[in-house]
Amino acid sequence: MSAAEVSLSPVSVKNKKKKKTFFTLMLRNRLALIGLFFIIIWTLFALVAPFIAPHSPTETDTISKLQGPTAAHWLGTDNYGRDILSRILYGARISIWTGLIGVGISFLIGVPLGAIAAFYGGKIGDFIMRCMDVLLAFPSLILAMAIAASLGPGLTSAMIAVGIVGIPEFARLMYGQTITLKEKEFVEASKAIGVKDTTILFRHIFPNALGPILVHATLSMGFAILVASSLSFLGLGIQPPTPEWGAMISEGREYIITGQWWLVTFPGLAIATSILGFNLLGDGLRDVLDPRLRSSK
Protein backbone atom coordinates (compact mmCIF):
# COMPACT_ATOMS: atom_id res chain seq x y z
CA MET A 1 0.00 0.00 0.00
CA SER A 2 1.51 3.29 -1.06
CA ALA A 3 1.22 6.49 0.88
CA ALA A 4 -1.06 7.97 -1.74
CA GLU A 5 -3.60 5.21 -1.44
CA VAL A 6 -3.72 5.51 2.29
CA SER A 7 -4.45 9.21 2.17
CA LEU A 8 -7.01 8.93 -0.62
CA SER A 9 -9.30 6.18 0.54
CA PRO A 10 -10.66 7.83 3.70
CA VAL A 11 -11.47 10.97 1.71
CA SER A 12 -13.66 9.15 -0.78
CA VAL A 13 -15.48 7.32 1.99
CA LYS A 14 -16.02 10.64 3.78
CA ASN A 15 -17.41 12.21 0.57
CA LYS A 16 -20.01 9.49 0.17
CA LYS A 17 -21.06 9.88 3.76
CA LYS A 18 -21.27 13.64 3.33
CA LYS A 19 -23.48 13.32 0.26
CA LYS A 20 -25.89 11.10 2.08
CA THR A 21 -26.07 13.29 5.12
CA PHE A 22 -26.55 16.38 2.94
CA PHE A 23 -29.82 15.14 1.50
CA THR A 24 -31.10 13.57 4.69
CA LEU A 25 -30.27 16.72 6.59
CA MET A 26 -31.96 18.87 3.96
CA LEU A 27 -35.05 16.69 4.00
CA ARG A 28 -35.16 16.87 7.75
CA ASN A 29 -34.99 20.68 7.67
CA ARG A 30 -38.64 21.62 7.27
CA LEU A 31 -38.12 25.36 6.98
CA ALA A 32 -35.64 24.88 4.16
CA LEU A 33 -38.16 22.69 2.38
CA ILE A 34 -40.82 25.37 2.72
CA GLY A 35 -38.34 27.82 1.27
CA LEU A 36 -37.57 25.49 -1.60
CA PHE A 37 -41.29 25.06 -2.19
CA PHE A 38 -41.81 28.82 -2.54
CA ILE A 39 -38.86 29.11 -4.90
CA ILE A 40 -40.09 26.26 -7.07
CA ILE A 41 -43.60 27.72 -7.19
CA TRP A 42 -42.39 31.18 -8.21
CA THR A 43 -39.94 29.78 -10.75
CA LEU A 44 -42.72 27.71 -12.25
CA PHE A 45 -45.02 30.73 -12.38
CA ALA A 46 -42.28 32.72 -14.05
CA LEU A 47 -41.70 30.02 -16.65
CA VAL A 48 -45.31 29.40 -17.60
CA ALA A 49 -46.75 32.91 -17.00
CA PRO A 50 -47.86 33.40 -20.63
CA PHE A 51 -49.82 30.14 -20.54
CA ILE A 52 -51.54 30.49 -17.19
CA ALA A 53 -52.10 34.26 -16.94
CA PRO A 54 -55.83 34.89 -17.46
CA HIS A 55 -55.29 38.33 -19.05
CA SER A 56 -52.62 40.38 -20.73
CA PRO A 57 -50.52 42.08 -18.03
CA THR A 58 -50.46 45.40 -19.88
CA GLU A 59 -53.93 45.61 -21.41
CA THR A 60 -55.85 48.53 -19.95
CA ASP A 61 -59.60 48.49 -19.50
CA THR A 62 -60.68 51.52 -17.53
CA ILE A 63 -64.28 50.37 -17.37
CA SER A 64 -63.32 47.64 -14.93
CA LYS A 65 -60.71 49.65 -13.00
CA LEU A 66 -60.15 49.26 -9.27
CA GLN A 67 -62.34 46.18 -8.91
CA GLY A 68 -61.82 43.98 -5.90
CA PRO A 69 -61.19 40.25 -6.28
CA THR A 70 -63.91 38.74 -8.50
CA ALA A 71 -64.37 35.60 -10.56
CA ALA A 72 -63.09 37.38 -13.65
CA HIS A 73 -60.15 38.98 -11.84
CA TRP A 74 -59.10 36.73 -8.96
CA LEU A 75 -56.86 39.31 -7.36
CA GLY A 76 -58.75 42.37 -8.59
CA THR A 77 -57.74 45.07 -11.05
CA ASP A 78 -55.56 48.15 -10.73
CA ASN A 79 -56.32 51.78 -11.55
CA TYR A 80 -55.98 51.12 -15.28
CA GLY A 81 -58.21 48.06 -15.12
CA ARG A 82 -55.29 45.67 -15.58
CA ASP A 83 -55.55 42.21 -14.05
CA ILE A 84 -53.40 42.05 -10.93
CA LEU A 85 -53.01 38.26 -10.99
CA SER A 86 -51.61 38.37 -14.52
CA ARG A 87 -49.29 41.19 -13.59
CA ILE A 88 -47.99 39.30 -10.57
CA LEU A 89 -47.37 36.17 -12.64
CA TYR A 90 -45.46 38.13 -15.27
CA GLY A 91 -43.77 40.09 -12.50
CA ALA A 92 -42.27 36.85 -11.20
CA ARG A 93 -40.26 36.64 -14.42
CA ILE A 94 -38.80 40.07 -13.87
CA SER A 95 -38.07 39.66 -10.18
CA ILE A 96 -36.39 36.27 -10.51
CA TRP A 97 -34.50 37.34 -13.61
CA THR A 98 -33.28 40.52 -11.89
CA GLY A 99 -32.27 38.47 -8.86
CA LEU A 100 -30.35 35.92 -10.95
CA ILE A 101 -28.54 38.50 -13.05
CA GLY A 102 -27.83 40.72 -10.04
CA VAL A 103 -26.46 37.90 -7.91
CA GLY A 104 -24.62 36.59 -10.97
CA ILE A 105 -22.82 39.92 -11.35
CA SER A 106 -21.97 40.05 -7.64
CA PHE A 107 -20.75 36.46 -7.72
CA LEU A 108 -18.69 36.68 -10.90
CA ILE A 109 -16.94 39.88 -9.82
CA GLY A 110 -16.87 39.51 -6.04
CA VAL A 111 -15.59 35.94 -5.76
CA PRO A 112 -12.52 36.34 -8.01
CA LEU A 113 -11.69 39.68 -6.37
CA GLY A 114 -11.84 38.15 -2.89
CA ALA A 115 -9.82 35.13 -3.94
CA ILE A 116 -7.11 37.21 -5.62
CA ALA A 117 -6.92 39.62 -2.68
CA ALA A 118 -6.45 36.78 -0.19
CA PHE A 119 -4.23 34.57 -2.31
CA TYR A 120 -1.74 37.22 -3.31
CA GLY A 121 -2.19 39.52 -0.34
CA GLY A 122 0.19 42.44 -0.12
CA LYS A 123 -0.63 45.71 -1.83
CA ILE A 124 -3.02 44.19 -4.37
CA GLY A 125 -4.97 42.50 -1.61
CA ASP A 126 -5.09 45.64 0.48
CA PHE A 127 -6.18 47.72 -2.48
CA ILE A 128 -8.98 45.37 -3.45
CA MET A 129 -10.28 44.95 0.06
CA ARG A 130 -10.19 48.69 0.83
CA CYS A 131 -12.20 49.30 -2.33
CA MET A 132 -14.70 46.75 -1.04
CA ASP A 133 -14.76 48.58 2.30
CA VAL A 134 -15.57 51.79 0.49
CA LEU A 135 -18.51 50.09 -1.24
CA LEU A 136 -19.62 48.60 2.05
CA ALA A 137 -19.51 51.97 3.76
CA PHE A 138 -22.62 53.06 1.87
CA PRO A 139 -25.99 51.71 2.92
CA SER A 140 -26.76 49.24 0.16
CA LEU A 141 -30.04 50.79 -0.95
CA ILE A 142 -28.53 54.27 -1.15
CA LEU A 143 -25.66 52.93 -3.22
CA ALA A 144 -28.07 51.04 -5.48
CA MET A 145 -30.14 54.21 -5.90
CA ALA A 146 -27.07 56.24 -6.81
CA ILE A 147 -25.95 53.67 -9.36
CA ALA A 148 -29.41 53.22 -10.84
CA ALA A 149 -29.94 56.98 -11.00
CA SER A 150 -26.64 57.58 -12.76
CA LEU A 151 -27.31 54.80 -15.27
CA GLY A 152 -30.83 56.06 -15.91
CA PRO A 153 -34.00 54.23 -14.98
CA GLY A 154 -34.53 50.83 -16.54
CA LEU A 155 -34.41 47.14 -15.87
CA THR A 156 -30.79 46.77 -16.97
CA SER A 157 -29.54 49.53 -14.73
CA ALA A 158 -31.51 48.05 -11.82
CA MET A 159 -29.80 44.70 -12.39
CA ILE A 160 -26.38 46.32 -12.59
CA ALA A 161 -27.08 48.32 -9.44
CA VAL A 162 -28.20 45.22 -7.57
CA GLY A 163 -25.11 43.39 -8.83
CA ILE A 164 -22.60 46.06 -7.82
CA VAL A 165 -24.13 46.44 -4.38
CA GLY A 166 -23.63 42.71 -3.75
CA ILE A 167 -19.98 42.55 -4.84
CA PRO A 168 -18.25 43.46 -1.53
CA GLU A 169 -20.14 40.83 0.47
CA PHE A 170 -19.06 38.10 -1.92
CA ALA A 171 -15.52 39.42 -2.02
CA ARG A 172 -15.19 39.48 1.76
CA LEU A 173 -16.65 36.03 2.14
CA MET A 174 -14.31 34.61 -0.47
CA TYR A 175 -11.41 36.51 1.08
CA GLY A 176 -12.01 34.90 4.44
CA GLN A 177 -12.39 31.45 2.94
CA THR A 178 -9.25 31.77 0.85
CA ILE A 179 -7.16 33.04 3.76
CA THR A 180 -7.93 29.89 5.75
CA LEU A 181 -7.70 27.55 2.80
CA LYS A 182 -4.40 28.79 1.49
CA GLU A 183 -2.72 27.74 4.75
CA LYS A 184 -4.09 24.19 4.42
CA GLU A 185 -1.67 21.37 3.67
CA PHE A 186 -3.22 20.40 0.35
CA VAL A 187 -2.73 23.90 -1.00
CA GLU A 188 0.80 24.09 0.31
CA ALA A 189 1.44 20.69 -1.18
CA SER A 190 0.15 21.82 -4.57
CA LYS A 191 2.33 24.90 -4.36
CA ALA A 192 5.31 22.80 -3.45
CA ILE A 193 4.93 20.58 -6.50
CA GLY A 194 4.66 23.68 -8.71
CA VAL A 195 0.98 23.81 -9.63
CA LYS A 196 0.00 27.07 -11.33
CA ASP A 197 -1.73 29.71 -9.18
CA THR A 198 -4.85 29.77 -11.34
CA THR A 199 -5.16 26.01 -11.12
CA ILE A 200 -4.81 26.11 -7.35
CA LEU A 201 -7.49 28.79 -7.15
CA PHE A 202 -9.92 27.03 -9.49
CA ARG A 203 -9.31 23.41 -8.62
CA HIS A 204 -8.50 23.50 -4.95
CA ILE A 205 -9.60 26.69 -3.23
CA PHE A 206 -12.81 27.50 -5.08
CA PRO A 207 -14.51 24.08 -4.71
CA ASN A 208 -13.73 24.04 -1.01
CA ALA A 209 -15.09 27.54 -0.47
CA LEU A 210 -18.23 26.84 -2.48
CA GLY A 211 -20.46 25.86 0.46
CA PRO A 212 -20.60 29.21 2.28
CA ILE A 213 -20.63 31.06 -1.05
CA LEU A 214 -23.66 29.08 -2.18
CA VAL A 215 -25.43 29.86 1.06
CA HIS A 216 -24.66 33.52 0.59
CA ALA A 217 -25.77 33.46 -3.03
CA THR A 218 -29.12 32.00 -2.02
CA LEU A 219 -29.61 34.59 0.70
CA SER A 220 -28.52 37.29 -1.75
CA MET A 221 -31.26 36.29 -4.19
CA GLY A 222 -33.87 37.39 -1.68
CA PHE A 223 -31.99 40.58 -1.01
CA ALA A 224 -31.52 41.28 -4.72
CA ILE A 225 -35.26 40.89 -5.36
CA LEU A 226 -35.96 43.26 -2.49
CA VAL A 227 -33.48 45.89 -3.70
CA ALA A 228 -34.78 45.65 -7.26
CA SER A 229 -38.34 46.06 -6.02
CA SER A 230 -37.28 48.98 -3.84
CA LEU A 231 -35.65 50.66 -6.82
CA SER A 232 -38.83 50.21 -8.84
CA PHE A 233 -40.86 51.48 -5.92
CA LEU A 234 -38.73 54.61 -5.93
CA GLY A 235 -39.18 54.99 -9.67
CA LEU A 236 -35.63 53.98 -10.55
CA GLY A 237 -36.43 50.48 -11.71
CA ILE A 238 -38.40 49.39 -14.70
CA GLN A 239 -40.41 51.46 -17.11
CA PRO A 240 -44.17 51.40 -17.21
CA PRO A 241 -46.15 49.40 -18.13
CA THR A 242 -43.79 46.51 -17.29
CA PRO A 243 -45.35 44.46 -14.48
CA GLU A 244 -42.87 44.61 -11.61
CA TRP A 245 -43.85 43.92 -8.04
CA GLY A 246 -42.14 46.93 -6.46
CA ALA A 247 -43.58 49.25 -9.08
CA MET A 248 -47.03 47.73 -8.55
CA ILE A 249 -46.84 48.56 -4.86
CA SER A 250 -45.60 52.04 -5.67
CA GLU A 251 -48.53 52.62 -8.00
CA GLY A 252 -51.02 51.12 -5.59
CA ARG A 253 -49.95 52.87 -2.42
CA GLU A 254 -52.01 55.95 -3.22
CA TYR A 255 -55.08 53.75 -3.12
CA ILE A 256 -54.60 52.32 0.36
CA ILE A 257 -56.43 55.13 2.10
CA THR A 258 -59.34 54.93 -0.31
CA GLY A 259 -59.73 51.25 0.55
CA GLN A 260 -58.40 49.46 -2.54
CA TRP A 261 -56.11 47.20 -0.52
CA TRP A 262 -55.63 44.58 -3.23
CA LEU A 263 -53.41 46.85 -5.29
CA VAL A 264 -50.59 46.59 -2.78
CA THR A 265 -51.38 43.50 -0.75
CA PHE A 266 -50.92 40.87 -3.46
CA PRO A 267 -47.67 42.17 -4.96
CA GLY A 268 -46.50 42.62 -1.37
CA LEU A 269 -47.26 38.98 -0.63
CA ALA A 270 -45.46 37.97 -3.80
CA ILE A 271 -42.32 39.83 -2.72
CA ALA A 272 -42.59 38.51 0.82
CA THR A 273 -43.01 34.86 -0.13
CA SER A 274 -40.27 34.86 -2.74
CA ILE A 275 -37.79 36.51 -0.40
CA LEU A 276 -38.86 34.25 2.43
CA GLY A 277 -38.28 31.28 0.14
CA PHE A 278 -34.73 32.24 -0.65
CA ASN A 279 -33.93 33.15 2.94
CA LEU A 280 -35.32 29.93 4.38
CA LEU A 281 -33.48 27.86 1.82
CA GLY A 282 -30.30 29.82 2.44
CA ASP A 283 -30.56 29.28 6.18
CA GLY A 284 -31.23 25.59 5.65
CA LEU A 285 -28.24 25.26 3.35
CA ARG A 286 -26.07 26.97 5.91
CA ASP A 287 -27.19 24.62 8.64
CA VAL A 288 -26.35 21.65 6.48
CA LEU A 289 -23.17 22.91 4.84
CA ASP A 290 -21.52 24.49 7.85
CA PRO A 291 -20.06 21.68 9.99
CA ARG A 292 -19.62 23.95 12.98
CA LEU A 293 -23.30 24.77 13.15
CA ARG A 294 -24.19 21.15 12.59
CA SER A 295 -22.08 19.85 15.43
CA SER A 296 -23.40 22.43 17.83
CA LYS A 297 -26.96 21.25 17.29
Binding site: Y80, A149, P240
Partner: peptide
Amino acid sequence: KDDAVLIQAELQKIGVKMNIKPMA
Protein backbone atom coordinates in the same frame (compact mmCIF):
# COMPACT_ATOMS: atom_id res chain seq x y z
CA LYS B 1 -48.03 58.64 -15.47
CA ASP B 2 -51.62 57.45 -15.70
CA ASP B 3 -52.09 59.49 -18.88
CA ALA B 4 -48.88 58.11 -20.36
CA VAL B 5 -49.82 54.49 -19.66
CA LEU B 6 -53.29 54.92 -21.16
CA ILE B 7 -51.98 56.75 -24.23
CA GLN B 8 -49.28 54.11 -24.64
CA ALA B 9 -51.96 51.39 -24.70
CA GLU B 10 -53.93 53.25 -27.38
CA LEU B 11 -50.89 53.95 -29.54
CA GLN B 12 -49.98 50.29 -29.37
CA LYS B 13 -53.29 49.58 -31.12
CA ILE B 14 -52.21 51.65 -34.14
CA GLY B 15 -48.77 50.04 -34.21
CA VAL B 16 -46.93 52.88 -32.53
CA LYS B 17 -44.61 51.83 -29.73
CA MET B 18 -44.09 54.44 -27.06
CA ASN B 19 -41.18 53.73 -24.70
CA ILE B 20 -41.90 55.42 -21.39
CA LYS B 21 -38.69 56.62 -19.76
CA PRO B 22 -39.22 57.92 -16.25
CA MET B 23 -37.07 60.86 -15.20
CA ALA B 24 -36.69 62.83 -11.98
